[in-house]
């Protein structure tokens, strides 16, 4: 459990969180009251009116209209209050402040890509400034996913045929968990990431440094990409087969393909596999890899190839 959170909630990381928690606790205490009333009552009656000795007839209490109206109307009023309260907060969640910073979110099996106007793209790591409202414009490349940050109390489905959006304003710096909550297949539980909330100054410098081309040596940059683009979700570098073939010793290896032919892994095959992953699939694996056309540029593909040559 979150050390900064309560029994029921992780720490409050957004402007909306405290409002959600307040309603929850209101309903919680109300529920505890009625729970004690009903089950406490049933246990008390069970004990108080337990069968004693000889059989007796029980009184004829068939109904009591005013009592029944009372216990229909009171809960109705209470749930009405809860309804209004819940709906008001929901409206606030739905109306994006006008000056929000926009980030494009692309979900696909099984990772998140975040695109900034300035050119930076990140994978599985959403970097945002603190105390500024951020609007996420989200779409999916394949099936339905759902974007969820527990600390922010926000969630929205990410659909393949349209854009959905969501906004939040982080109230403290730090790292927060980010989950996919709409079941999306084999890698569903690996489709997780972090929201990194930075101070204004840190965010500005991060954005500037992430938006230009990389000046790392190709193999090292490739290693970065292997991590940041979540290749590791499906391809190990230690030899264990996962969703896809391992990268250990991949370069120069001869692989049998699903159509029966075989191929030696070279620069062209790797490039081809990144851009058109479904066309030449290694035997024993499912054609599930998404295309990285438009996600990786040619400098990045070159870097990945350089990295793969080093994985022995």
């Amino acid at each position: 459990m979150d050390p900064n959170g309560t029994l029921f909630f992780p720490e409050q990381g957004s402007t909306i969180a405290s409002e959600v928690d307040l309603l929850f606790h209101f309903v919680l205490y109300l529920s505890i009251f009625f729970f004690i009333l009903v089950t406490g009552g049933s246990f008390y009656f069970a004990w108080r009116f337990r069968k004693k000795g000889e059989d007796q007839f029980t009184p004829n209490i068939s109904h009591n209209t005013s009592l029944e109206i009372f216990w229909t109307v009171i809960p109705t009023i209470l749930v009405f209050i809860i309804f209004i309260w819940g709906f008001k907060t929901y409206l606030k969640m739905n109306v994006t402040p006008a000056n929000s910073m926009e980030v494009n979110v692309t979900a696909q099996k099984w990772f998140w890509t975040f695109g900034y106007k300035e050119g930076a793209t990140t994978t599985n790591e959403l970097v945002v400034p603190v105390n500024k409202s951020v609007k996420l414009l989200m779409s999916s490349q394949d099936v339905i996913h759902s974007f969820f940050v527990p600390a922010f109390r926000v969630k929205m489905d990410v659909l393949p045929n349209r854009y959905t959006s969501l906004w939040f304003e982080a109230t403290k710096t730090g790292e927060f968990d980010l989950f996919c909550t709409e079941y999306c297949g084999k890698g569903h539980s690996e489709m997780i990431g972090k929201v990194k909330v930075l101070s204004d100054a840190e965010f500005a410098s991060w954005l500037a440094s992430s938006s230009g081309p990389s000046d790392l040596p190709p193999a090292e940059y490739g290693k970065e990409l292997y991590k940041s683009k979540a290749c590791f979700t499906c391809h190990s570098i230690d030899g264990t087969p996962s969703v896809g073939p391992t990268f250990k010793g991949v370069f120069g290896r001869t692989e049998e393909l699903t159509d029966g032919s075989s191929i030696t892994v070279d620069e062209n095959y790797i490039r081809h596999s990144i851009l058109e992953p479904q066309s030449q699939v290694v035997k024993g694996f499912q054609p599930v890899m998404p295309t990285y056309q438009g996600v990786l540029n040619s400098q990045q593909i070159d870097a990945l190839i350089a990295f793969l040559k080093t994985v022995k």
């Binding site: 959600v20 309603l23 309903v27 309260w85 709906f87 929901y90 527990p150 926000v154 969630k155």
Partner: peptide
């Protein structure tokens, strides 16, 4: 049933 709570609890 309260929408704002459901957003957090859903799925």
């Amino acid at each position: 049933g309260a929408i704002s709570l459901d957003i957090h609890f859903h799925d």
